[in-house]
Computed example of a mutant assay.
Amino acid sequence: MSENKKNNKLPMPGKVKKGFRFYVVTILALTLVMGMSMTAFAAGDDPLTVVNNLSDFIFGLIRAVGLILLGWGIVQVGLSLQSHDPSQRSNGFLTLAGGIVITFAKEILTLITG
Rank of each mutant, 00 (worst) to 15 (best):
S2Q: 07
E3A: 10
K6I: 14
K9D: 15
L10R: 14
P11A: 14
M12T: 15
M12N: 09
G14W: 09
G14A: 15
K15Y: 13
V16N: 07
K17E: 12
K18S: 13
G19W: 02
R21Q: 10
R21K: 12
Y23K: 11
Y23V: 12
V24S: 09
V25G: 00
V25E: 10
I27R: 05
I27E: 06
A29Y: 00
L30P: 00
V33R: 00
V33F: 11
V33K: 03
M34P: 00
M34S: 11
M36N: 12
S37D: 04
M38Q: 13
T39Y: 13
T39G: 06
A42H: 14
A43G: 15
G44Q: 09
D45P: 09
D46Y: 10
D46L: 08
L48R: 12
I58L: 14
G60C: 01
L61F: 14
L61R: 10
V65N: 06
V65T: 07
G66Q: 04
I68T: 07
I68Y: 05
I68W: 04
G71C: 06
G73D: 02
I74M: 13
G78D: 01
L79I: 03
L79T: 06
S80K: 03
S80H: 04
S80W: 04
L81V: 04
Q82Y: 08
H84C: 00
P86W: 00
S87Q: 11
Q88C: 00
R89M: 14
R89Q: 08
F93Y: 15
L94V: 14
L94H: 08
T95C: 10
A97W: 06
A97F: 12
I100T: 06
T103G: 05
F104E: 03
A105R: 02
K106E: 07
E107T: 05
I108R: 02
T113A: 06
G114I: 01
G114E: 02
G114S: 05
